[in-house]
Design a protein around this nucleic acid. Structure first.
Lengths: 282, 282
DNA sequence: CGCGGCATTGACGCTACTCAAACTAGGTGG
DNA sequence: CCACCTAGTTTGAGTAGCGTCAATGCCGCG
């Protein structure tokens, strides 16, 4: 489905970027960020640089060791740069993907959905994340969730077996892969606990702390402590096992108590200690 | 913690079985089963045979390919046979285990727990399961949950790196490992959906169907369709994210409608179609 | 100006929790 | 054989947390 060109590796930009839908507004980024003069590492719609050398997110990806030692080896394997319009589901539960992408800009979500409409979001994907780690670990099996672009996204795309080879090419790479796998595994166990044993407030606090932590790792937290959060309350509900109405009330509570502020796709944690307490105790 | 003998592989039974606590009643098995003359493949407290050749559960373990082609290779690696008394937690969240066990008889659970007592059961372990698959996949990391024996259990125990080597020794073994890992991954995703988006009734139905399926695979379902289920309502509650009182009422409902019967650690699914409908729709 | 996508709010109801008491079956000791 | 104990199940009454449904508001956009 990623219309990857079967020919040579991508050594120069394709004449026309592969795109799953025309971007209505390629510069759609956080106006507030611009207004406040904040430095946002990577804006939506921004496409990755030609060389992995210049990629600011490279060291937060599964390819980190190679991009440090021999970035050209990663570039040589890249088959495509793909942009996907916000809202589009571009990987479907049950498919066996032939390509694996590394998210460069924008956010995505992994989710499972039933015919009757019930939906559970498994995970949010931020720049640097691998889509889909499962495909890298189990290339012969179909993926266990669908993936939808939350904002416009752009990705570097590889053939599954190319990136598997890369991920196993050196000791450092194997360790990196193991780290990513283990991290995701731990994440799943924690989510399980959240959904089973925490209240709405606790789950929300847990999620916000996790997202801020992951943003922080990737230098995506602005100097004022705020971070990009292009997530509708509907998505929060589907991630936390709640309804939008109740998510709204829960957010309202955290906001009323001055613990967080949310405006225009940006979140700031004002009282981290208290948020952590809530995440632990509720 | 598994007091494995560092010396030679276990070619004969140790003079005294390593035991984490004396079994009060080594023959504690389902009296009802005996009464009804049912064949139970493996009873609690039964210890594995000396040779993997004669092991009835071997072909449902991670070692299947090797036990088919060269069972002596598995035996040669076994360092210990261990029994653990019911109720004992013998692997602790955060430890880096040096040994990996394959459950031969009895049931165990993997769980996470908070200081305040909240507990979430991640998974039930049946005969043939690996304790702990995470340790096999990520030997350098600590395990993400604790493991407690639900009944008296007995296990075949290996050194982590021995069984890792075994699990990667042949193409068939690598495939088997991949299958087990993928299966567990899929399981986690499904549990996540259950806890986030299904009602108490739906979750319970889902769990019962899953357990029966796994029991069936291992020939643990009796001729009359019943299967062993040594799980207290408290464990069900911790697995399903509910309270014991509500689990009780939910069971009562399924029972009242004639969909399942539970007596003395045995469950029978009387109306599978209806149970599946509930599992799907609720 | 009207429209579409979200966020917010209110009224109301159900699902599941809390706490506590009663009950059951086995196991134990006299 | 009975009295008692323990672990687990069952039940009731009251309640809180979260869901449902529907209306309203807000804002950017065409």
């Amino acid at each position: 489905m990623f219309c990857a060109r079967p020919g040579q590796p991508l050594l120069s930009y394709p004449s026309r970027l592969h795109s799953l839908a025309p971007a209505r507004n390629a510069a759609h980024t956080c106006w507030l960020a611009g207004l406040l003069g904040m430095r946002i590492a990577i804006e939506y719609g921004q496409i990755p640089p030609l060389s992995c050398n210049e990629c600011t997110i490279a060291r937060h990806t599964i390819c980190r060791p190679t991009t440090e030692d021999a970035p050209q080896d990663v570039c040589a394997l890249r088959r495509d740069i793909i942009t996907v319009a916000a809202g589009r589901t571009f990987l479907h539960n049950g498919e066996v993907p032939k390509n694996i992408s590394i998210l460069y800009s924008g956010w995505a979500v992994g989710y499972r959905q039933l015919r009757d409409g019930r939906r559970q979001i498994i995970s949010f994907f931020l720049p640097g994340d691998t889509l889909v780690l499962e495909a890298l670990c189990f290339p012969e099996y179909s993926i266990p969730y669908s993936v939808k672009a939350l904002t416009e996204i752009s990705t570097c795309t590889f053939k599954v077996y190319d990136i598997i080879a890369l991920a196993h090419s050196t000791v450092a790479q194997r360790r990196e892969l193991s780290r990513a796998r283990h991290r995701y595994m731990t994440y799943l166990h924690e989510r399980l606990f959240d959904l089973g044993r925490r209240s709405a407030l606790g789950r929300l606090a847990q999620l916000l702390l996790e997202i801020r932590h992951r943003s922080d790792e990737r230098d995506l937290v602005a100097a004022d402590g705020s971070f990009n959060f292009p997530v509708r309350q509907e998505h929060l509900a589907d991630a936390l096992g709640l309804t939008t109405a109740y998510v709204n009330r829960t957010i309202a509570q955290l906001r009323r108590d001055g613990i967080i502020s949310i405006m225009q796709d940006r979140v700031t944690i004002n009282d981290e200690a208290e948020l952590r307490r809530i995440a632990e105790e509720e």
